[in-house]
């Protein structure tokens, strides 16, 4: 539990859209199943007064917080307005924004994250599946049925690949403490470094699986900081240069960030790199 537990109150910004409404329902079904507090309010400017799956909707974060106790926002606001919404959450004193939204202009992301930092608010994402601590808290869109409570932390830049790895771990009876999808955009709030720092302080987490991909050097930066035992996997060994592989961040440009050199740098600092996702459970057992 590095971002909250059963008692964490959650609001959803962008509550009345298709995705927002759908995931309020799923998040609250999960919180009911574990006896948690879940999503207490939704926010969509101009749509206040409605109810989404029994959750009241307000026009602003400020109005929602007058009536409800919450410390986290999960954000489904469309890309063009998402930067503004992140800042609204931070301004109103929320501790964490989980930005699920895809296609936020990167200049908006940079400014919003920088502003949130001034207000002491952390941002997961954007363009991420969110985070969950099995048995406690689900923030975002991860399919909860694949996860199982345990001692391995999972950090990933990807959505479905995380589910693939979590699925492999659970099938091998290796449970997870917290799973964090940090997002596939070039600029993101919580990086591998930040999440690893949180895992180091978390008594539940004994080892970490770090799932990276081509582009940038955030994986190496993170791995070199960690004192916890790590297994990594890097997707995109076959990615051609200069082509964007789905994620805006997954681009091999100017020879930096290609999977091959990333893997060599990780191995040179003594980190185990799995060749295939299916090798991960075996390698985790070896370091646990």
């Amino acid at each position: 539990m590095i971002y909250g537990d059963k008692n964490t109150g959650v609001i959803v910004q962008g509550a009345t859209g298709r995705q927002g409404a759908f995931h309020i329902d799923l998040m609250n079904r999960y919180s009911e199943s574990v006896g948690g507090k879940g999503v207490v309010a939704g926010v969509t400017p101009g749509k206040g007064g409605q109810e989404i799956h029994g959750v009241p909707v307000y026009n602003s974060v400020r109005e929602a917080l007058l009536e409800h106790d919450a410390s986290v926002s999960v954000l489904f606001v469309p890309g063009f307005a998402a930067g503004d919404s992140i800042m609204e959450a931070a301004y109103n004193g929320l501790e964490l924004v989980v930005a699920i939204t895809e296609h936020i202009p990167v200049h908006d992301t940079m400014r919003a994250i920088s502003y949130a930092g001034l207000e002491g608010c952390s941002v997961i994402g954007p363009n991420c599946p969110g985070t969950m601590s099995p048995g406690e808290l689900k923030l975002g869109i991860m399919p909860a049925q694949l996860a199982m409570r345990g001692n391995v932390g999972v950090i990933s830049r990807s959505g479905t690949l995380t589910y693939e790895v979590v699925n492999e771990l659970s099938r091998a009876e290796i449970g997870q403490s917290t799973i964090v999808g940090i997002g596939g955009d070039p600029v993101i709030g919580e990086t591998f470094v930040n999440v690893l720092e949180r895992f180091e302080k978390d008594p539940e987490t004994k080892a970490v699986v770090l799932i990276g991909e081509v582009g940038g050097n955030l994986e190496e930066e993170g791995a070199s900081f960690s004192n916890l035992p790590l297994v990594t996997y890097i997707a995109g060994v076959s990615a051609p240069p200069e082509k964007r592989m789905g994620h805006a961040g997954a681009i091999v440009a100017g020879g930096e960030g290609d999977a091959g050199s990333k893997i060599r740098r990780l191995e040179s600092i003594g980190i185990t790199v799995a060749e295939k996702p299916s090798d991960i459970p075996v390698l985790v057992r070896e370091i646990l």
Binding site: S158, G159, L161, E213, G246
Partner: peptide
């Protein structure tokens, strides 16, 4: 054809690993 960038990329990697060549992502 996959869902999610990471999973699809990883599928491409598996194809290369087993000696094949992907036509697309």
């Amino acid at each position: 054809i996959g869902n999610g960038a990471g999973l699809t990329m990883s599928t491409l990697d598996m194809i290369e690993y087993y000696g094949g060549k992907a036509a697309n992502f």
